[in-house]
């Protein structure tokens, strides 16, 4: 590929892509602030259910703690 080929492609690109307006039309701070204020989603209900079930099992059958510890 010659230097001339490169120039031709560059000229074709410049003709095909009109200049863009680079001026920001609005203050984006409110959107940034809103995004920062978004809290991550809470813990899903099934995780709470699993935790509750596990606690109940361990209270009812304390030896399960030893079984679990062995497998860990």
């Amino acid at each position: 590929m010659t230097e001339d080929d490169g120039r031709k492609v560059r000229d074709a690109l410049k003709q095909s892509f009109p200049p863009v307006n680079v001026d920001l039309r609005r203050d984006l701070w409110p959107r940034v602030l809103a995004k920062l204020d978004d809290r991550p989603a809470g813990i899903p209900w099934y995780d709470w259910a699993l935790a509750g079930l596990s606690t109940a099992m361990f209270l009812a059958f304390p030896r399960l703690i030893l079984v679990l510890a062995y497998h860990l």
Partner: peptide
């Protein structure tokens, strides 16, 4: 943000060409 948002936007819009 107030100081740099315009500069960041100008850089990005040159690349993605969609305001």
């Amino acid at each position: 943000t107030q100081q740099f948002q315009g500069e960041i936007y100008a850089w990005i819009v040159r690349i993605v060409r969609d305001s």
